[in-house]
């Protein structure tokens, strides 16, 4: 358990000393969201309708951007080998790395989303649902993404390949995440969507670290 905390601490410390990488993904999120009104037009009713989808798609893309970093730097400087050879079970260390990834790339999106939601004239209660959905959904993105990051480690054109592998797997998260906000706005209630997101999160939390561990061992062999 202390090893889990240690790896979270280590990755957060590194992220703190390399703030620019975290901030880049965050500004990417803001810019992508702001591009949609420019492309579609400023009509408030339409923007309000598509806001949940836009915010979610931007969150997916922004997560993709930071996924490359998850194992690549550790791979390049040889510390990944040390993690694999550590007496601590690799699954635990991988879970810690995923947690740290969410704290540096998922959580900021959750905190920023309601501010951006205001630009689209979402009501406070809809903003609340948006935050709730992102809170359940962004860890899911980190978990699923870690499998892709491990599989494409050290592979030619890894970044583009990673999005090709991972984005289709993100579709359920997108559907239920954006759907929760839409359902709330249309008065259907978001609880169904949110419980499904939570179920997916539980499933991924169980299986993803395991699959990532297997993929990492293959990549290092």
């Amino acid at each position: 358990m202390s090893a889990l905390l240690a790896i979270v601490r280590r990755d957060l410390l590194i992220a703190m000393r390399r703030k620019s990488e975290v901030l880049t993904a965050l500004f990417f999120f803001i810019i992508v969201v702001s591009l949609f009104p420019l492309g579609i037009g400023p009509e408030p009713a339409l923007l309000k309708k598509i806001a949940p989808g836009i915010l979610w798609v931007a969150a997916l893309l922004s997560t993709m951007l930071s996924l490359n970093r998850l194992f690549a730097t550790d791979h390049a400087d040889g510390t990944l080998e040390q993690l694999v050879l550590s007496p601590t079970p690799l699954g635990l260390l991988v879970a810690g790395k995923i947690m740290a990834h969410w704290l540096t790339s998922g959580l900021p999106l959750v905190l920023l989303a309601p501010v951006l939601g205001l630009q689209f004239d979402l009501e406070p209660s809809a903003l609340g649902v948006l935050v709730g959905a992102l809170l359940l959904g962004t860890p899911l993105l980190s978990l699923i993404g870690s499998i892709g990051a491990a599989l494409t480690l050290g592979v030619r054109g890894g970044g583009v390949l990673l999005s090709l592998l991972v984005l289709p797997l993100y579709i359920p998260a997108l559907i239920f995440g954006a759907g929760a906000v839409e359902a709330h706005i249309s008065g259907l209630g978001a609880s169904g969507h949110l419980s499904l997101l939570a179920a997916l999160l539980a499933l991924a939390a169980f299986f993803a670290p395991w699959a990532t561990t297997a993929a990492l061992r293959i990549s290092l062999e």
């Binding site: 590194i14 390399r18 400087d77 040889g78």
Partner: peptide, 15 residues
């Protein structure tokens, strides 16, 4: 019981 040091430094540059 094992310590392995490979080609790479295996130290984090930021720390």
């Amino acid at each position: 019981e094992l310590l392995y040091l490979g080609h790479h430094g295996a130290v984090k540059e930021e720390l």
